[in-house]
Design a protein around this nucleic acid. Sequence first.
DNA 1: CGTAACTTTGACCTAAGTCAAGGCGCGTGG
DNA 2: CCACGCGCCTTGACTTAGGTCAAAGTTACG
Lengths: 242, 242
Amino acid sequence: MPTKCFNCPLRRKSIFSPMTDDEVAFMSRFKTGELTVDPGTQLLMDGSNSPQLYTALSGMGVRYKTLLDGRRQVVSFVFPGDLIGMQAGIMGEMKHSVEATTAMTLCVFSRSDVWNLFKTHPSRAFDMTWLAAVEENFLGDALATIGQRTAIERISWAMVKMFRRAEALEMTDGQFMPLPYRQQDLADALGLSLVHTNKTLGKLRERQLASWADRKLHLMDIDALARIAQIEHEEPEMRPLM
Amino acid sequence: MPTKCFNCPLRRKSIFSPMTDDEVAFMSRFKTGELTVDPGTQLLMDGSNSPQLYTALSGMGVRYKTLLDGRRQVVSFVFPGDLIGMQAGIMGEMKHSVEATTAMTLCVFSRSDVWNLFKTHPSRAFDMTWLAAVEENFLGDALATIGQRTAIERISWAMVKMFRRAEALEMTDGQFMPLPYRQQDLADALGLSLVHTNKTLGKLRERQLASWADRKLHLMDIDALARIAQIEHEEPEMRPLM
DNA sequence: CGTAACTTTGACCTAAGTCAAGGCGCGTGG
DNA sequence: CCACGCGCCTTGACTTAGGTCAAAGTTACG
């Protein structure tokens, strides 16, 4: 039985900007269903013009691009609350693929309703654009990371970024958070080889800064990691939820 | 004397989706002025909450992020028709800086009118989101380039991408296009050192594929470059102009 | 209990970075 | 009008971070 938007568990998290009753009611109508998928499921394919967009309710995934010869770039990790498939919703075609890493449940929206959303609910349209801007900003940061930072800086950066996201979503438990990916996924996200990623993770473990095993990430010293990665301290910003 | 939107020279280019008379009229009101700047001018600063957004009418620039210790990542090159400062317009604060490389003229919009645009002109709001999605897609491609491609592939990728953009804007002259940047800018965009960028450009010159001097790029064999970069052939897609 | 999907480790290699010096064109001021 | 300084490009010599290869652990699972 699908969750009704008005008691959406995600919306209560303090990271998400509040919605008016009218907005919630509209989203309830906008939502066409709920989807549950197994780990490994391909949600969206590069080049597809999927008629659906999704908001991740629970579970985690990866977005990635593939070069002709098979090299893979992980573009970002999908966390609960993320909107998936906006490119298809706006531009008509996906430019990357999305795969579920764990089991996921997703709110399903219909692409053809997006235009209606823009016409009748400008505040929700604004929020959707906000999400696009947040994503653009993130990709810019990721670009700076891959383009300029060393391996240990990159990995520290990724851990701090992911941990902060997890904190905002109340997914952390003390110094721990779930991190159900493979080292290969992180390597593909950071433009490093699997072997070098593994060895660099080993260094962080030795130095008692972070350790990642059994799909759990343990950050022992997030400030030290942030210093290594040269991440400035920033308050978590509120963001909309679609 | 500022150009009126209804005879905007840019809008005529076939790459830009057509606008209704009503949309043009609205943009005319949305536009608060025109700005002309000298080469080297800082248009927007990381962290600023500039009250303005711009559309580049002519001239070229760079968007970039800077790490604490000064390392610089060029996020993208600004071409005519690009919307600048949407992050501030939507999220309230710029997350990168923008600098004019050549002299530029820009349409000026007021950030405080953006919300009004969403309320009264959903089609223009949709277009703005489209631009954000295009930019997001581009940054994803750039990420894949820096993360996965070798130096010669990266540079070939950049040249083909830029040349295609220039073609769409009718800025090319046969095999030539203006490219007023320094090698350092390209290096910072691709995550390469200046020296290695220079040597790789030398290789492309030797192999008679591309040569870049005197702020002009000469692409002798764009297909060969696209093959090196593993760029799939794609028709230039129409995009909105703000 | 075998096999497949991941992680870990060691040995070796190479693409790209760093350092340093020189060249070239241009603008400015003596 | 020339020369000196500055910004940018070029080149060569050397170094290194990170890649590749290969093999051995580990865990989960049918």
